[in-house]
């Protein structure tokens, strides 16, 4: 169970040179799981999620001093997770020369060679099918779906994270959920 230290205490400690590292340690303990799962829902593979999570935490270390407190710390961290995940996916697609919409090839290119080779990728059938369903979604729509479906993030907060209007997010989630349900019906 992560420690229940208040975000304002973390920020206060981080602002002093002598307690900066300790503050960051407390932040990592508090948010590491949330960060990992936020990222994992986007990038799907554990190894990729590990790399991106580390990048997110290092980015937090470098920029927390500039955090202005306009949104909550959790929202700010979610935004970094989202941006880093999307950046990672763009790079990966470019390196695999995969174009928007060609998600079957993307999955085939990144899937383990045989079933069970990577236990953490296809632990359950449902997990595997849901991953397939999410892969059919465009990147931003997948982000909206993840944040709403898994994190149950309010649209107002999501609007700050993704810099998109609440109306657009509601519409995006509605279409994403319909696509996933249609995909699941076939199984």
């Amino acid at each position: 169970m992560p420690p229940t230290i208040d975000d304002s205490q973390i920020l206060e400690m981080f602002s002093h040179e002598t307690t900066k590292e300790k503050a960051f340690e407390l932040l990592v303990k508090k948010y590491k799981q949330d960060i990992y799962y936020n990222v994992r829902k986007m990038v799907l593979q554990h190894e990729d999620a590990n790399d991106v999570s580390q990048n997110v935490l290092i980015k937090i270390w470098r920029h927390l001093g500039k955090f202005r407190g306009e949104a909550s710390l959790r929202t700010w961290i979610s935004r970094i997770c989202s941006n880093e995940s999307l950046t990672f996916l763009d790079k990966k697609k470019r390196s695999l020369q995969i174009y928007e919409g060609d998600y079957t090839d993307y999955r085939e290119a990144t899937q383990p060679q045989s079933a069970g080779e990577n236990d953490f990728y296809s632990a359950t059938k449902i997990y595997d099918i849901l991953q397939q369903a999410m892969l059919t979604l465009p990147d931003k729509q997948r982000t909206v779906f993840s944040l709403r479906y898994y994190d149950e993030m309010p649209y107002e907060e999501m609007s700050k994270v993704l810099n998109t209007s609440v109306g657009a997010l509601k519409a995006s989630y509605h279409f994403a959920a319909k696509k996933v349900e249609t995909f699941l019906k076939d199984y």
């Binding site: 960051f24 590990n50 999570s53 580390q54 935490l57 359950t124």
Partner: peptide, 25 residues
């Protein structure tokens, strides 16, 4: 589906993640 844990994680992974990041910092 939401209720099912869909992303299993290796044992001790989060402690390892914390250790690596703090060392890097």
């Amino acid at each position: 589906i939401k209720k099912i844990e869909t992303f299993p994680v290796p044992d001790g992974y989060f402690d390892q993640l914390e250790k690596e990041v703090l060392q890097h910092v």
